[in-house]
Amino acid sequence: MSMTTRERRSAVLGVITLLTVVLAVVFGSPDKHAISLAEWARNAPNDFVTTAVAELDGSSGTATYGAPYVNDPTAGQKLGPLPLQRFGGVREPVDTAQDFVIGPLSTVTSDPALRSALARYQGASDDQRKAWTGAYADALGKAPDNDPAKVATGDYGPVPLLAGRLLDLARSGGLDGQLLSSGGFYQTDYAKPLLFIADGTYLEDQARAEHLGGDQWGMMNETGGYPGQAWLWLYTFWYQIPPFSSSDNADALVWALMMVLSLALVLLPFIPGLRSIPRATRVYRLIWREHYRTNR
């Protein structure tokens, strides 16, 4: 019995549709809920406070990132001598102290202690602020579990109060809205809340527990026991081996390498040697065995 080409196409569509439905019914799909700033502040308050102080201090990941968020000519990845990251320019400017801490706290008007702490902080010189935030960041780092309640006494100025009030604001859920609604009524850009949450360790700890870390082949993995983006195996592979695994410019290097390899895939028909592999391996004799048998 032989099918026509049209019947065969319909059969293939039927099989693929059926397979999709069966897989969806049997396995479902992963949907680990998003982490809000409120959840972060409630579940890992010490990490939240440590991160908030780093944002105020200008020492967080985002504050030292370079383009496109921060203007820092020394920051950013390079491809050999080319500072590609800097070439992009600072197009999504973020002032971590103002945007993540001072700005949101300034909207709270019913707290006299907070008002005077803010006034004191904003009235201080840059050096004084840096001395307060630096000292408090160090003290938090040394405190057991980074617990603000166990920090040694020192001259931290208004910084502990500001960090504590930001924690309260975040716990109440207020900070989630504040970081999003900085520009207008409608918002679709989650850059600020995402950058803030990614500066902490809470998000990363959860990701690593799901094998999603960059050095865990994370790009091809998925939460739970689901298959992930297996097609990213080569891209994520490079991050596991030297020189990429130990390079500060790993992203730029891997990107460049994958661009070259992708181009090679696209232009394979024109690349001597590579284009001769099919003839040499002779797998085609298996594919066309009927043809070779009948046309001998």
């Binding site: 396995f27 479902g28 992963p30 527990a209 799901e210 094998h211 865990q216 082949w217 091809m220 993995n221 998925e222 739970g224 026991g225 689901y226 298959p227 992930g228 297996a230 195996w233 596991q240 081996i241």
Partner: peptide, 24 residues
């Protein structure tokens, strides 16, 4: 499949059982 996945390690290679099944 919402349970934590199982991962296999061989030297530098780490792969989830789910991905291994798909590739296999």
């Amino acid at each position: 499949m919402d349970q934590p996945g199982t991962y296999l390690h061989w030297g530098v290679i780490q792969i989830s059982v789910a991905n291994l099944i798909v590739i296999g």
